[in-house]
Design a protein around this nucleic acid. Structure first.
Lengths: 337, 337
DNA sequence: CAAGTTCATGTCAACGCTGTCTTGTTATCG
DNA sequence: CGATAACAAGACAGCGTTGACATGAACTTG
């Protein structure tokens, strides 16, 4: 039982008694071949377990593959997976394969995996930028590989971008808490160094300022350490000298961390609104600033597919809306002082 | 601003004043080239934005790519993406790319995406089998593409398999409920047609039988309809003539559906143990039969990488353990009758 | 110092496929 | 019935890369 050789068009051609070009036609423009010949070829192909080699086909045809590359920080986060899922849906609808690669949230990792994907000649590159600078991708668009940034714009690179309405979503949520009478409203996030978070913090501060509340930094915890436990960060804030009566968490991780930190606090628990919806938020009664990561992925993929046909169109920046979903935790009033 | 042409080894060679083979060597066995030449070549490559075409390389070298293909039902389920995450970790550690494809949980989808992956010459194929028959993959192993089944064994195909200890996990959980005094214990799952579920049901029935309880079908809901809402299925069982006092749910979806169905039942809610752990299970106090989908993926990927080197070794069947995690919901005693 | 060894680089063909062009065969029509 | 179109199939080259083999220069070594 040795390893066998894979059959090629030549092998099939020989067995079917035709030329390799005819075999090629059968797997390409089948209607250019006489029906009887098609049958003979297919029969021979099946007998030899022939599978066309799409690498060779792509190489010959020139241009890129019909594969879409998606680069993200890490798997294991529902937000990223939602995006991946949306990309996959749209890609498979259109017959494109999806290659996923993770950067481990490091700039080096990003450049490494992006290089690998480009070496594989992906037809389009979707990425959640991590590095401080994507200028190494400059030129790819002109070489026929569209680049699309997701969740955060690319830096030093002209590229399409699909992002969320971060600022207005958090502004709105913060305003709701303020309207209920809260004044000491906190904002917690990690990582904090990405644009998306900067926008959310901005929305928070603007809402606070609109109510004449300054010096918000005492209620902010903008951490940037992937190893820091969300639960600790929140617990730390809640046990500070001047703890907030309401809290906004910057992503699903943080929200779940907050829930852990708040377990057993009963009536003393602060009001809570989380950015990102999650599976059991309804069961837990957690109010959220919701958005649709799957749609984010779908839109990005659709844009990518469009760009594969026309790499040089004007780049777009698409902003998807957020939606507040009240489930109780964000409607809790401040304790009567 | 027209689309430019991608540079090839020839272009770089011309600019650097060497032969194309030397350029090839610089990007392959760099130490066979004089340092000064390496520098000249790298400089020329950078100027031309040269990126080696790994399609051509793979074609020339023969054999498969270093890409691992993963075929699963859908990307929106934490169980699946846990597996994907594990595969990705192990693959990227080893320098393999990961292509993900979803079948939409249909047999046709499975064969279609598998064909596409094989046409792309993936180095190994990992799949969560959906179709009733994987014999169409027969021979791939001998053609150098190892196939590894995850979560469920492949049917009519000799292939490695990595599965969970489904039977014993559910047997153990059911026994715990029985030991606490429950007698009317229910089991709910959807989809029910896969081997993994059959094993879980078997574990449930065996535990019941060990306590001398027969006629369990009145407490079973083995649904096989992807569109059926989990919440409804559970609600239906709970409102039946002879409702169970304790419930085992066959996967995370079902568990969350049960939580929804049980909202507001207070003291009347049945005891609950879910198969699969999930993000907020600790916060919700849900007892689970836990296992590690990430590890499942890692093991599968490791096996795949091993098999790429040696496609014809004896196939293995690896069974990963489950672990009961008590968090309260599964420790609730039956109501005093 | 001739013969052998090492090292840096080059020449050429081929991986599997398909676009372009050519050839041969059969149907169509004034 | 000879000219012409329509169709089926083949010959050949080349996509970008690298393995096998060849070449020539510098360096050992007895």
């Amino acid at each position: 039982m040795a390893v066998q050789q894979r059959a090629t068009v030549e092998d099939v051609a020989r067995l079917a008694g035709v030329s390799s070009k005819t075999v090629s036609r059968v797997f390409g423009n089948r209607d250019l071949v006489a029906p009887a010949t098609v049958e003979r070829v297919l029969d021979a192909a099946k007998r030899l377990r022939f599978r066309p080699n799409s690498l060779a086909r792509t190489l010959r045809r020139g241009g890129g593959t019909d594969t879409i590359g998606f680069v993200m920080g890490e798997l294991g986060n529902p937000f990223y997976y939602g995006i991946a899922s949306g990309i996959e849906q749209e890609a498979s609808r259109n017959g494109n394969a999806l290659v996923v690669a993770t950067t481990g949230d490091t700039p080096d990792g990003e450049e490494r995996v992006v290089d690998a994907l480009l070496a594989q000649r992906v037809g389009a590159l979707l990425l959640v930028p991590v590095a401080a600078d994507q200028s190494y991708l400059e030129g790819e668009r002109h070489l026929g590989t569209p680049v699309i940034a997701i969740d955060r714009p690319a830096r030093n690179l002209v590229a399409d971008a699909i992002v969320l309405a971060n600022r207005s979503g958090v502004f709105d949520a913060t305003s709701r808490l303020l309207a209920r009478g809260h004044r000491r409203v906190g904002y917690v996030c990690n990582p904090a160094a990405v644009k998306a978070q900067a926008e959310r913090v901005q929305g928070y501060r603007e809402a606070m300022a609109a109510y004449g509340i300054g010096g918000t930094s005492r209620w902010e915890r903008l951490v940037d350490d992937p190893r820091a436990a969300p639960e600790r960060i929140v617990a730390d804030l809640l046990s500070s000298a001047d703890p907030p009566t309401a809290l906004i968490t910057g992503n699903n991780r943080m929200t779940i961390g907050a829930l852990r930190a708040m377990r057993g606090l009963g009536e003393d628990a602060p009001a809570l609104i989380g950015f990102d919806d999650f599976d059991t938020a309804d069961v837990l009664g957690v109010s959220v600033i919701s958005h649709d990561p799957v749609e984010l992925g779908r839109r990005a993929a659709r844009l990518a597919i469009e760009r594969i046909g026309d790499p040089l169109g004007f780049t777009q920046r698409i902003e998807l809306p957020t939606r507040f979903i009240g489930r109780g935790s964000g409607e809790r009033p401040p304790p009567k002082a």
